[in-house]
Design a protein around this nucleic acid. Structure first.
Lengths: 194, 194, 194, 194
DNA sequence: CATGAATGAGCTTTCATTCAT
DNA sequence: CATGAATGAAAGCTCATTCAT
C-alpha cells in the first residue's frame, strides 16, 4: 500500500520533470503534468498539497540522489584532491547524461518564486556542505592552504561549477561538458593547494 | 522631444527597479510601475512594447553602466592581476552599496521567463567578455598560465563571484561583501598564476 | 441487521450535526462527516443517496423529535392558551439548551440550496400545522377571536418565534432566550384573544 | 465620469438580481452576471472587490431604497398605528409587485455564507430599528401597552411579516400577499394596543 | 457490507494589453 | 502624446461521488 503510494508519487515526479523540460516552467500546468502521469488532476492533490510542492519534491528527490552518489563515491577516495575531482566529475557527467534534469535544475526551477527558491536552497545545502568538508579535509591534510576560508571557498567552487554547467546548456551543448572536468579541477587545485 | 522621451524612459526604469525591489518580481504589475513612475498604464506601452521589455531595458541599462565603470577603471590598471582585482572590487562594492540593485539582479530578475533570461544573458555577455580579455591579457603578460582555457576560465570566475554575491544576499547580508574581495581574488590569482 | 443499519444511520446524523455546528455548513465536507462518524467516505453513500439527504434526514429527525415532544406536552394542557404557552416554552427552552442544534437549524441549514430548503420546509410543516391546530382550538373554545385566519396566523406566530431565536443567536446569546417566553406569549395572546 | 461609473454599477446590480432570480444563488456565476450586464468578467472586478460584494451591494441598494420609501411614507402618518399599517402595506405590496426582488431577498440571498449574512444583517438593521421606533412612538402616544419590550417586539413583528412573505413565495404565490395586510396589522395592533 | 483511492467538472480572480477619447 | 476603463484568457484547487477490491 505504501509502496503503491510511493510508486505513484514517483510517477508524478517523473512526469513533472518531463513536462517541465519540454514546456518550461511557465508552460507546465498541473493538468499537463497529470495527463503525462496518466492520472486525474485531482489525484495530484492526493500526493502534493500545492503545485509548488511537486517542484520542491522533484528537486529534493533528484538532488538527494545526486548527493548520495557524491557521498558514496567520495568514500572511495583517499585525499581531498581526489574527492574534489570526483565531485566535479559526477556533477558534470551526471548532468551531461541527463539533459532533462540539467535543464530543469539549471534553468527552469530558478524561474520560481522566492519561497520555492528558498526550499530549493535547502536541498542544495547538503551539497555545498559536502564541498566545504572536502576543503576542510584538504587543509587538515596540509594539501590545501591553511588560510583558506572554507565558507567562502565552498561558494567559489560551487558557483564556478554551476555557471559552467549553465553556460554549457545555454550554448546549446555544443561541446562536451565532461571534457571540462580536468581544466576545472586544475583551476580549483591550483587555487587551493598549499 | 527626444530628450523628453528619454527622460520618461528613465523614469519608468527607475520606477521599475524600485517597485521590483519593494514588491518582488511577481508583485510588480505594470500598473504598479506606472503609478510609481507617475504615468498612466497605457503610457508604459508608448515606451516599451511588452512588459518584459522594461525588465530587459532595466538590466541593460544598469549592467551597461557597470560595465562602463569596469572598463574605465581597468584602464587605470597596468597588469591583468590589478585588472582582475579591480573587477572583483567593483563587482562586490557596487552591489554591496546598492542593495536594491543587488536584489533585483541576483534574485528577482532570475525568476523570469526563458526569453527574458536570454535577453539578460546578452547584457551580461560584455562583462563576461571583459573577464575573458583580462585572462588573455594575463597569459600574454606571462603572469597567467598559458594552458588556461579563457572561455572556460571566464565562466569559472564569473560564476564564483556571482554565487558569492547571491549567498551573501540570501544569508541576510550578515557580513561584509567587500571584505571578501581579497580572499576571492587570492583564490583566482592562485588558480591563474603561472 | 436493520437495527445495525439504523444504528449507523444515527451515528452519521450525530456526526453531521457535530461537524456542521463546529465547521459551519460550507466547512462540512462529506469526508469530515465520515471521519467524525468513524466510517469511510463511501459508506456514507450506503445510507444516503446524496450529501443533501444527510441534511434533510438530520432536519427531519431532529425536528420530528421536537414535534413529538410538542404533541405529548400539549396533551397535558387543557386550553389553547396553555398549549400555545407550552409550545413557545419548549421551542425556546429546547434551543437554548442545545445551542449546537439551534445553530444548525437557524443559521447553517438555511445556507442551502432551494431543493434542500423545500425538503426542510416539509419537516417544519407538522410544526406549523400544530400551531394552526392550536389556533383553531382556541377559536372553538371561544377564547380566540373567530375572525382569525388560522393559515395566516400560524405563519405570524411561527415567524415571530423563529426570528426571536435567530436574533438571540446572532446577538451572541447575551441574554436568556427562555426569559422571552412570557413576553412573547403575552404578545400572541393579546393578538389572538377575543 | 462618476455618473458613468454609478451607471455601470447599477447595471451590474440589475443584472445580478435578474440572474439570481432566474438561476438561483448557486447558479449565478460571475461570468453569467457579466454577460447579462453586457460587460467582460474582469469589468465586474473594477466595481466590486469580490463576488460577495455584488450581493451585499445588491441587498444594501434594494433594501436602502425600501427603507427610504418607508421613512418618507411614515412621515405622512400621524399615529404609530397608521405608521405600522403603512410599513406592512409597503413591505407586502413592494415585494408582491417585484417578485424577482422578493425571490432574491427571501430565498436566494439567505443561502449564503455566514459572513455575507452578517453583512446583509447590517442592511436589514435600519428597517428593524424603524419598527422599534414605531413601537416606542406608540407607547409614548399611550396607544400601545407601556409594558412592551421594544427590542423584543420589533423582532416579533419583523419575523411575523418576513415569514408571511416567504410562505407566500414558497406556496407559489397562489393568493394575494397584499390582501394579508389588514389581517396582519390587526394581529399586531391587537397585540400592541393598550 | 465496507473501504478509500481516484475522478474531473467547475469557478473565481488576476493582470498584461488595447483603444476610444 | 497621454489616458485609464475595459477586456478576457487562463489556471490552481476542491470535493461530491464512484467503484474495484
Amino acid at each position: 500500500m505504501t509502496s503503491r503510494k510511493q510508486e505513484k508519487f514517483e510517477m508524478i515526479l517523473d512526469a513533472a520533470q518531463k513536462v517541465i523540460a519540454e514546456n518550461g516552467f511557465h508552460g507546465s500546468q498541473v493538468s499537463k503534468i497529470a495527463k503525462e502521469a496518466g492520472v486525474a488532476d485531482g489525484t495530484i492533490y492526493l500526493y502534493f498539497k500545492k503545485k509548488e510542492d511537486i517542484l520542491i519534491s522533484l528537486f529534493e528527490d533528484r538532488l538527494g540522489k545526486l548527493v548520495d552518489r557524491f557521498n558514496s563515491s567520495i568514500q572511495e577516495t583517499d585525499t581531498a584532491e581526489q574527492a574534489l575531482r570526483k565531485v566535479c566529475e559526477i556533477h558534470f557527467t551526471e548532468l551531461e547524461n541527463n539533459v532533462d534534469l540539467a535543464y530543469v535544475t539549471q534553468i527552469e526551477l530558478r524561474q520560481s518564486s522566492i519561497e520555492l527558491r528558498k526550499a530549493i536552497g535547502l536541498s542544495v545545502k547538503p551539497y555545498i556542505q559536502l564541498i566545504e568538508h572536502i576543503v576542510q579535509k584538504g587543509i587538515h591534510e596540509n594539501s590545501f592552504r591553511p588560510e583558506l576560508d572554507p565558507k567562502l571557498t565552498r561558494h567559489l567552487i560551487f558557483g564556478a561549477m554551476d555557471e559552467v554547467v549553465t553556460s554549457w546548456l545555454i550554448s546549446g551543448r555544443k561541446y562536451s561538458l565532461s571534457a571540462q572536468v580536468d581544466k576545472t579541477v586544475d583551476f580549483f587545485l591550483k587555487a587551493l593547494s598549499s
